[in-house]
């Protein structure tokens, strides 16, 4: 189940940031990805809310600056 979430998150972030899927993995962080700007971050958060049907609070949004952190928060919701 968690692997499934990881794969969906990687695909989603790659799609939203317009990056090749191969360049987004469990270790990717905002610092690694030039396209992950503050606007990119907002778009990622909005699409997570759309795709995973969750509502993220500001503290979570602030903390979700890596694939691992995103997957962690989504697992709490699951």
């Amino acid at each position: 189940m968690s692997d499934d979430i990881l794969a969906r998150v990687c695909n989603l972030v790659a799609e939203i940031l317009n990056m090749p899927p191969s360049e987004v993995n469990a270790g990717t962080t905002q610092a690694d990805a030039p396209a992950w700007t503050s606007l990119g971050h907002l778009n990622i958060m909005l699409s997570l809310e759309q795709e995973f049907d969750v509502s993220l609070d500001p503290e979570q949004v602030e903390s979700m600056t890596s694939i691992a952190a995103i997957v962690g928060v989504l697992r709490e919701h699951a």
Binding site: E15, I16, S47
Partner: peptide, 11 residues
């Protein structure tokens, strides 16, 4: 019609 779908169409 989500952001991800829009990106998929644009790509």
């Amino acid at each position: 019609p989500t952001l991800a779908s829009a990106r998929a169409v644009l790509a």
